[in-house]
Each structure stands twice: as structure tokens, then as C-alpha cells.
Amino acid sequence: MNIFRLSGDVCHLIAIIILFLKIWRSKSCAGISGKSQVLFALVFTTRYLDLFTSYISAYNTVMKVVYLLLAYSTVGLIFFRFRNSYDSESDSFRVEFLLVPVAGLSFLENYAFTPLEILWTFSIYLESVAILPQLFMITKTGEAESITAHYLLFLGLYRALYLANWLWRFHTEGFYDQIAVVSGVVQTIFYCDFFYLYFTRVLRGSGKMSLP
């Protein structure tokens, strides 16, 4: 555990909590892509199956359980409790275009051809593209509330910090997880355009972030 990894995990947690509280307090999930949230719940589910097979640390177990609980609670808020506010018209990204290639790739390129390994690989690949329905929705509606932008900022920070973590681990331990690193780089690239918009519009302007 290093400072980049720890702050990355904390940013990830903050992002998930920001989103959950936003929906809970405003009693609305307007502007939020339910599809992205279902994909993230699927990411956590398929990756954390090792909760049942291997123990790493109390920190690891607690964080996994918290991520899972929050992910499913958020999905529950969007599709059940506050489903009247769910904007399914704008959330029109075709997720099969992500799921099919990601599933195919996880069968082709993995560390071992076993069910758990393939599901873990699937989760890594899926996480790298799971935010696309949300970014697509923002592009389609042309704007995002600043709180949604804060959520995306913390998710992006989490990714960037994990890149720093991998650089650090490679230099100090010689640790190198090829699948995670390559997917992580791809995932972080998706946030670059958003980072630019965040710093030029949300921080300088007020309220909503509009796309050109």
C-alpha cells in the first residue's frame, strides 16, 4: 500500500458517495446514466468474487463490501425508489456495444482460462469503458450539474492516482499487472476531455457544465 493507491481508493469512495448522496438528497437521478451505474455494479460483482476464495486484508475486504453495497444501493435508487426521475430517453447508449467486445476480449486475453479469472478480466475491461454511457448522456443533453461533474472528477482522479500507484509499484516492487495497467491507461484517457471541461467551465463558471 502506498500513498497513491490509498488516495486513489479514497477518491473512488468519495465519488461513489457523492453520487449516492446527490440522488438521495435531491430525490432525483436526473442527468445520471443508470446504465453506467449498472455496469459499475457488474464490474464490482465480477471482480470481487474473490471475497469468497482469498483473503488479502481487512482493508481489502471492507472496501470491497462497501463498494458493492453502495453500487447496488445507487442502482436501487435510480431504478426503483426514484425511477420517476430517471431520464431513460437520454440514457440511450447501447451497452451491448460495450458488453459483447469486452466479454469476447476477456476470453481471449486473460491470465488463466478459468471462470474466476475470466470474470476478473471482464471486470477490468468493463470498468475501463463503463463510464461511456454517462459521458454520452452528458454530450447528448449538452450539460451536467456541477455535482455530477464533481462525481466524474473524483472518478477520474481515482484512475489517475492508480496510474501513479502502478508506476510507484513498478519501481519499488517490480510489480506489473499488464491487463490492469493497459485497461487503466485506456480508462484514464476517457476522462482527459472531461478534465479539461471541468477545469475550464465548472471551476471558472458557476453551476452547470455545458459542452460546446
Binding site: 488479502i56 486473460n110 491470465y111 482460462f113 492508480y162 499488464q178
Partner: peptide
Amino acid sequence: ENQKPQKDEL
């Protein structure tokens, strides 16, 4: 098969 690293990250 590729070499399998320890999966201690979240």
C-alpha cells in the same frame, strides 16, 4: 498464458 500477478488492488 501470461504470468498472473497477485490481485491485492481494488
